[in-house]
Simulated assay, not measured.
Amino acid sequence: MTDPRTAPYAALLLRVALGVLFLAHAGLKVMVFTPAGTASFFESLGLPGALAHVTILLETFGGLALIAGVYSRVVALLLIPVLLGAIATVHGAAGFFFNNAGGGWEYPAFWIVALLTSALLGDGAHALRPTPNLRKAGH
């Protein structure tokens, strides 16, 4: 049984942790690899370099939205393709364990599960703009 007193805080904790992780990954792409270097890496994978800039924006604004609790259920679902792309292009071929050379798909897969969990749990406590409940709206 879910404890209605603590569940909103569990959702808050998960939402904020996921947001911080996305900001950290965006920061890595901007401050360490640089946007140009990230674009070059994407191109080396056969992807358009512009997709690197889109990814950085998604990670940045998605991370901020999760932390703030702005439509976090929807944002969590919208960020899943970023991780699926990481698995498909980089981590999948490296095997399961993330400590393998090239980083396996274990960590991004767990991250996807955490995003799905966040979307199912809901916005949680202290969300600035909770995702509207379509059932209550009559849809």
Rank of each mutant, 00 (worst) to 15 (best):
A52I: 13
F42H: 02
F97A: 14
L58V: 10
V32F: 08
M1K: 11
D123M: 09
Y71W: 15
L14V: 11
K136I: 04
L47E: 03
Y9P: 00
A119Y: 02
G63K: 11
L66K: 07
P132N: 03
L84C: 13
F110Q: 09
A88G: 15
A11Y: 04
A93H: 08
A10W: 11
V32D: 10
F61I: 15
I80P: 07
F42A: 12
R15V: 12
T38C: 12
G102K: 06
H91S: 11
F41T: 10
V82N: 09
F97K: 11
G37C: 08
A109I: 11
V75E: 01
A127I: 06
F33M: 14
P35A: 12
G103W: 02
L18E: 00
M31R: 14
G37I: 13
V54M: 15
A88T: 07
G138V: 11
H53P: 00
K136A: 15
L66M: 13
P108T: 01
G37V: 12
L66I: 06
F22N: 07
G63N: 07
L28Y: 14
E43L: 00
A109Q: 05
I112P: 06
A65W: 09
T34S: 15
P4N: 10
A125Q: 03
L66D: 01
N100K: 10
T2F: 13
T38M: 12
L128I: 14
V20A: 12
T60H: 06
A36G: 12
L47M: 15
F98Q: 00
L51R: 04
L12A: 10
P81K: 08
F110G: 14
G19E: 01
F42Q: 07
L83C: 07
N99M: 15
A119S: 12
G63P: 11
V90A: 14
A86E: 05
